[in-house]
Design a protein around this nucleic acid. Sequence first.
DNA 1: CGTTTGACTACGC
DNA 2: CGCGTAGCCAAAC
Length: 155
Amino acid sequence: MPSLTNLPPDSQAFFQTVWHIVRQIPAGAVSTYGQIASMIPPPEGVGDVDYKRFGAVWVGKAMNAVSAADNADVPWQRVVNSQGGISLPAGSRAATEQRRRLEAEGITFDKRGRINLDSAGWDGPDADWLAAHGLLTPVPLKKTPPDTPGQLTLF
DNA sequence: CGTTTGACTACGC
DNA sequence: CGCGTAGCCAAAC
């Protein structure tokens, strides 16, 4: 069972940042709790070690808060766990709704109910967007870097 | 006011 | 590759 640490110092600000990022995820692509967290600098007073350990959990908290808050414009369904699976309780109304929405966007699931992050994984917002908001470069979800065939490696 | 219960993940069997 | 565990807090019951 997960035992969660305390919420970030300013949970409201943190949640806002998370939602802001999630709104950038395009339809047909998915991000992960960990990837979202990797784009946000550790909040004031939070050590790197703790942040690395609980950042993803806090993103989950932010997603959980979407339904409570007035955030109909946040595409929460596009955030899944590190294995490409839905983290909501299997069979729950919310989990079913998430899968239904993703499939409607063209996302496909394998036998075990997992999404292939190698193909559907998000690369993150544009570098300028990130810089403009004081955010960091996200960890890559795709194992194989976009190696454009036909494009030669210079020198 | 004591219990229960988490929209996570890396790691070890 | 699937399952259990640590992490050790906070809010909902």
